[in-house]
Simulated scan of single mutants.
Amino acid sequence: MTSTALPAPTAAAARRAHYAAFFGEADLPDAYGLVVGNCQAESLRIVLDAPDRATVRVPPVHELTAPEVERLHEILPGAAFLVAQPVRDDYHGLPLGTRQLAAATAPRARVVTFPVIRFAGLHPFQATLRVPGVDATPPIVDYHDVRTLAAERGMGVRERLDARGVHAIARDSLAELQRREQSIDVRVSDLLEPVAVGGMRTVNHPGNAVWMPLGERVLGALSLDGAPTDPGRPLLNAVHAPLEDWALDAWALNDEPRPTWIVDGRTIDPEEVVEAHRRWYGERPAFVDAALERVARMLDVWRI
């Protein structure tokens, strides 16, 4: 007997299935909430979601197309609450600004903002960068090492930092987060101290040790009863940046150092990343120049 294998779903079909309720391919729950932002928003949504406070999974704002933004505005008036990261008005030329989304909710809906979380305490060599006009991401991992960027322009930098340098970069990133929190409803910066390995997997991927208490704070700000939902698995777990011994020593942590990357469960030698990124930088000199401007304060600490 001959069997015919069913065709694998296309990426577009798989995406629509993943966000089925958002796309109208599954029923919206009663009294649903929405959590909107970058990839961090989905982790917060997971810990907020519960049988008595259902949430709808929404694609990250940087992925949304014009028809999808129209769909978002269709379902906003029915939301019992909106939790959002700060997004500027007319982001990508679309009505995706946090104020624009809040204005589309019903008068009874509760709206709470939380910050984009970045903290370099454990990864003082790492940056996430976007440069206008460069529609690409580097290969293997979408993170930039200031040492690799500096080498591309022949700048002399250290291979590692002492505790003073690590603490200086950590203070700077924490101060920037605190500055952003001044106009936001729920703060997170104090959850990043004391520095612990469970706090951040990369410079912008917090672990459950951050998401659970942040979820509790958001529930309080929304005046919703109950505790955050333990997902039973690590959140934002796909990418782990190296844990270098000198960075751990700077915080007197006893965790085992790990010089490698872990990406989707696969161990990757950092030299493989360095070589791939240097080739990528070599094809994009304008990106390198703009990136070095953006990491100038961090580079000041790293320079020899």
Score class of each variant (00 low, 15 high):
residue 221 A to E: 05
residue 238 A to K: 11
residue 286 A to V: 12
residue 189 S to I: 06
residue 295 V to I: 13
residue 236 L to E: 10
residue 81 F to E: 04
residue 219 L to I: 11
residue 145 D to R: 04
residue 264 D to T: 09
residue 94 L to A: 04
residue 213 P to T: 01
residue 298 M to R: 12
residue 128 T to S: 12
residue 198 G to R: 12
residue 215 G to K: 00
residue 54 A to D: 02
residue 102 A to G: 06
residue 45 R to W: 00
residue 27 D to T: 08
residue 300 D to L: 09
residue 239 V to D: 07
residue 104 A to H: 00
residue 133 G to Y: 05
residue 152 E to S: 15
residue 96 L to F: 08
residue 54 A to F: 06
residue 61 V to S: 05
residue 7 P to S: 01
residue 151 A to S: 14
residue 181 E to D: 11
residue 106 A to G: 10
residue 187 R to D: 14
residue 245 D to F: 01
residue 23 F to I: 04
residue 288 V to M: 12
residue 264 D to C: 08
residue 121 G to Q: 00
residue 181 E to S: 03
residue 16 R to N: 02
residue 257 P to R: 09
residue 122 L to Q: 05
residue 234 P to R: 10
residue 298 M to C: 04
residue 30 D to G: 15
residue 110 R to A: 08
residue 204 N to H: 07
residue 95 P to I: 08
residue 186 V to I: 08
residue 299 L to N: 12
residue 154 G to V: 01
residue 255 D to I: 05
residue 142 D to Q: 13
residue 15 R to Y: 04
residue 94 L to N: 04
residue 158 R to S: 03
residue 70 E to V: 08
residue 191 L to R: 14
residue 204 N to M: 05
residue 211 W to R: 02
residue 49 D to M: 03
residue 17 A to H: 11
residue 6 L to V: 07
residue 228 P to S: 03
residue 169 I to Y: 00
residue 182 Q to E: 13
residue 219 L to T: 02
residue 26 A to R: 14
residue 98 T to D: 09
residue 91 Y to L: 14
residue 142 D to M: 06
residue 26 A to I: 05
residue 258 R to E: 13
residue 27 D to N: 07
residue 33 G to K: 01
residue 17 A to R: 15
residue 179 R to S: 14
residue 160 R to F: 04
residue 217 R to P: 03
residue 108 R to V: 14
residue 7 P to W: 01
